[in-house]
Nucleic acid binder design. Structure first.
Lengths: 238, 238
DNA sequence: ACCTGAACACCGTTCAAGT
DNA sequence: ACCTGAACACCGTTCAAGT
C-alpha cells in the first residue's frame, strides 16, 4: 500500500481516485481505520487536499457506497422475474461480502444514495415486468429489507468485520465453550446439528451461503404464491 | 436532563446507573452524541469515574445492548410455536423502535452479548417445543436474521436515527421530488400506490408496521409449510 | 487505596496565512 | 486563486500526581 502511494503520488487527485482509495482502505484495514487523515496519507497527500474532492466525511461515505452499489450486476435480460430477482440479490450479496463495511455503512446513513435508489428502482422494474401490481411490488420490496431479529445474524463473525490481515486464511474456528453450551443448550444443539459441517462450532460451522439461499427461496416462494393468487393488500390472505 | 443530573449527583455511581444514563442519552440525543465525556457530564461526574464501572466504551455499548435486549417480552406460556414466535418478534421490534440506535449497535459489535444469546436461545427453544428438528430450527434462525437487500429498508428514515428533539411530532413528510420520480419511475409508482396512505410521499407514506408483519407472515407461513412437510436439509424441497 | 487532573494520541473541519 | 499549516473543538484512554 505504501508503494502504491509512492507510484501515484504525482498523478493528480480526483474524486474517483479518492473514493477508490477509501474503499480499498476500508476493505483492507476496516472501516474504523478510515479517517480523513489516514486516507490522505495513503494517497501521499495532505489531509486538507481531500476536501477539494469531497465536501466532508459523510459525502465520502456516500461516494464509497455508490461505488460499491455500482458493482452489483445489472438485471439479466430474462423474463422470469423470480430468476432475475434471485440472481440480482445473490450478486448484491457477493458485493457486500467483498466490502464487509458496506452493509452497516448503508444502514447508518439516513438517506439512500442515488445509485442505491437506481438499484432499488430496477429491482421494482423487474417485478413490474413480471406482472406484479405496484401494490404487491411495494410490499415485496419492504419484505426484502426486513430483518425479523432486528439485526443480521450473519454479521456475528469477527473475521468479516475487521480488516483482512493480508492473508486469506480463515480464522481458527472459535469453539463453543462448555459453559456456554450449558447456558444456551438450544443454541449449542443447532450449532452441532449443522449437517453441512461436522464440528461443534458456531459461526464457522454454518454455511452462510446455504443459509442465505434458504431464506431467499423461502421468501421468493411465498412471494410467488401471493403473486399467483393475485394478492392485494385490500384482500389479504389471512 | 440537567435537573436529573442535579438530583442524582450525590447518589453513588453504579454500573446500572451508568448504563441506564447511557441508554437515555443515546435515545434522546442520538448514538453519535454518546461519548464518555458527554455521559460523564450527564451524570455530574468526571469522565474517568466511568471507568470504574465499565472497562471501556465497547463494554459500555455491550451493557447498553444487554439492557435493551432485557426489555423484550419473555415467551408467552403457549404451545403454539407460530404465535409465540410472532409475538416475540413483534415485541423485539417494539423495543428496537424505542431505542433507534440499538439495531445498528448490535450489528456493529462482532460478538453477541450474553443477553442476546439468551434471547436467541429461548427463540430456538420455542421452535423445538413446537416439534422442529434442530436442523430446521437452525435454518429458521438464520432466515430470521437475513436481509435480502443487504440492509434494512426501514432504516431510511432520518427521524428515526437522529435523536428525538424533545417534541414527539413527526417530521414533515419529505416529498418525492418530480426529478426523482422521472429518474426512478418504479419507486415513484410504488410510493404512490401505498394504499394505506394517500400521499405522494416515500417513507412517511408507508405503514412500517404493516410492512413488517407482511414480511413476518410471509416467512412464518413458509416455515410452517416446511415444518408440516417434515423438511430436512438433506431432502430439500426444490 | 482510591480518585482525578493533565496529558497523549488521535479525530473532522475551519481558517488564516502563505504562495 | 489556489494550497496548506496551524489551530480548534472534540474524541477514548493512560498515567502519574494528588488525597
Amino acid at each position: 500500500m505504501a508503494e502504491q502511494a509512492e507510484t501515484l503520488r504525482r498523478t493528480p487527485l480526483s474524486r474517483d481516485r479518492v473514493l477508490r482509495a477509501a474503499v480499498t482502505l476500508a476493505d483492507e484495514a476496516g472501516i474504523e481505520s478510515l479517517s480523513m487523515r489516514n486516507l490522505a496519507q495513503d494517497l501521499g497527500v495532505v489531509p486538507m487536499a481531500l476536501y477539494k474532492h469531497v465536501a466532508n466525511k459523510d459525502e465520502l461515505l456516500d461516494g464509497m457506497i455508490d461505488m460499491v452499489v455500482g458493482e452489483i450486476d445489472p438485471p439479466a435480460p430474462d423474463t422470469d422475474w423470480k430468476r432475475v430477482t434471485r440472481e440480482r440479490i445473490l450478486s448484491a450479496r457477493k458485493v457486500l461480502l467483498r466490502h464487509p463495511w458496506a452493509a452497516i455503512a448503508i444502514e447508518s446513513r439516513n438517506e439512500a444514495t442515488p445509485a442505491l435508489l437506481g438499484h432499488l428502482n430496477s429491482m421494482v422494474g423487474t417485478l413490474r415486468e413480471g406482472g406484479f401490481s405496484t401494490d404487491l411490488a411495494h410490499h415485496v420490496m419492504h419484505a426484502m429489507g426486513s430483518r425479523m431479529l432486528g439485526f443480521s445474524q450473519e454479521l456475528f463473525d469477527a473475521s468479516r468485520r475487521a480488516g483482512r490481515s493480508g492473508t486469506t486464511e480463515p480464522d481458527p474456528p472459535a469453539a463453543f465453550p462448555a459453559e456456554a453450551a450449558a447456558q444456551f443448550p438450544h443454541l449449542a444443539a443447532i450449532a452441532t446439528a449443522a449437517s453441512h459441517d461436522d464440528t461443534s462450532v458456531v459461526g464457522q460451522g454454518c454455511d452462510d451461503q446455504f443459509e442465505f439461499e434458504f431464506a431467499l427461496d423461502l421468501l421468493l416462494d411465498g412471494i410467488e404464491r401471493l403473486h399467483q393468487q393475485g394478492w392485494t393488500s385490500s384482500r389479504p390472505p389471512r
